[in-house]
Design a binder for these strands. Structure first.
Lengths: 230, 230
DNA sequence: AGCGTGTCACGTACGCTGTACGTGCGTCAA
DNA sequence: TTGACGCACGTACAGCGTACGTGACACGCT
């Protein structure tokens, strides 16, 4: 019996196996051993199917949230969880990223992330902005890692850089060894750490201001929750 | 007379006017008042044409690099320059981002950026990583801002959040007003500032270590080039 | 048992796509 | 004059998404 789940799963597998370009309704139908139009009894359109694929992949994010850990560590964990599924479904990741989906699939991660940020001491506005910034970084990184990469992300610009005239691009030529190689794990962790530290600094500044205000109000007590360490 | 440039320009205009999905070789040919196959005398394939489009848009990045400015400000300026063309060609931006192109089109920005970072005191490896992180953030932000939907609905997950059960997603429901509205300019600047500050801190730490090493070597002089201010 | 209704797999068909290939016209070199 | 070449163009084909119709089957009601 054909159903929506079987179709989505087949689509995911097909995308991973042969790339998003290879996906067609006929191809998926063949994969399932059914007629093309049978699919439309369960999926309204190809676009909707791709949305479902994105949603499906997104919903696979694993959560091993450890409430006892420091919030900075929890942020790191969540970012890595996101990255992990992206690496598990690299080609589907492109579908996820390039598709503006509207469903509740990606809502749980958002809820968790916001809760973590509130816990860190940020107010609503700050928490949302931090999250948006974080998502931007993670998504941008994944775009680079997953292979579909704009030139300016000098990952595999090897060939290009090799051709570049050292006179025209002196710095670029000098840094070629670093541009050629790219350890995705290290790169990701580098940026992640920088971001987390920046957030921690912000949180500390916030706590400081808070303490100052309280001090001005009734004196004493230089509090320090939401530490900036590590 | 038909030529590659006219074709690319027509493609860019068509994409901006009607979206990337509306682009077909026939459509472009019609736009130029020529036969379909004439295009193939100047462009090897549709894929190559889209690459050319991406390259063309990318090459339009304006550079008003001010060497006298502090490096942190120069970083900001470069990021904004990137963002500006993305906003000028929003739909083409999706093409740029989702396409792996290999050409020298995006090389000049990279050269400038790396030069700026070297100037800030980072060594080669750090400069490259900072740049990659920055690009990830900018690209991720643009992906969010530019959206993918045919209509430029600034609407994000609003509708979804509205439907979300407050019991299941307490934080999310509480922060709904902040999630609903999204001033892209402010959001971008917020993340940009956080990143720049993080970089500045790193640069300062670097300078400190450097000074410490020199002090240990011959004593005195607590230098401070590459400040962390601002 | 007969019948209406609903679900679902499927075939056909239409308008669209990218592009391989052949053809004919214009211009230039020998 | 002749040959070669560049370039615009038409035709043709395989493949695409999907609107629509058809027929097989399962069901509750009379």
């Amino acid at each position: 019996m054909l159903n929506r789940n079987r179709i989505v799963t087949a689509a995911v597998e097909l995308i991973e196996r042969e790339g998003a370009d290879a996906v067609s309704m006929r191809r998926i139908a063949a994969e399932l051993g059914v007629g093309v139009m049978s699919l439309y009894n369960h999926v309204p359109s190809k676009a909707a199917l791709l949305d479902a694929v994105a949603e499906d992949v997104l919903s696979r994010i694993g959560f091993a949230d450890d409430p006892s850990a420091h919030w900075t560590e929890r942020v790191r964990i969540q970012a890595r969880a996101f990255r992990r599924i992206a690496h598990h479904y690299p080609r589907c990741t492109m579908v996820v990223v390039s598709r503006q989906l509207s469903s509740t699939a990606g809502l749980l991660p958002v809820e968790r992330a916001l809760a973590t940020l509130r816990e860190a001491g940020f107010d609503g506005q700050e928490a949302v902005r931090m999250l948006r910034m974080f998502i931007a970084y993670v998504v941008g990184s994944l775009l680079r890692e997953v292979g579909v990469t704009p030139t300016f992300a000098p990952v595999r610009a090897d060939a290009v850089v090799a051709e570049a005239d050292p006179a025209l691009f002196p710095v670029l030529s000098e840094l070629r060894p670093h541009l050629d190689s790219c350890d995705h794990d290290e790169e990701f962790e580098f940026g992640l750490e920088l971001l987390v530290q920046a957030m921690a600094v912000r949180a500390a500044a916030r706590a400081e201001a808070q303490a100052g205000r309280e001090e001005g109000g009734r004196g004493g007590e230089r509090a320090g929750r939401g530490g900036a360490r590590q």
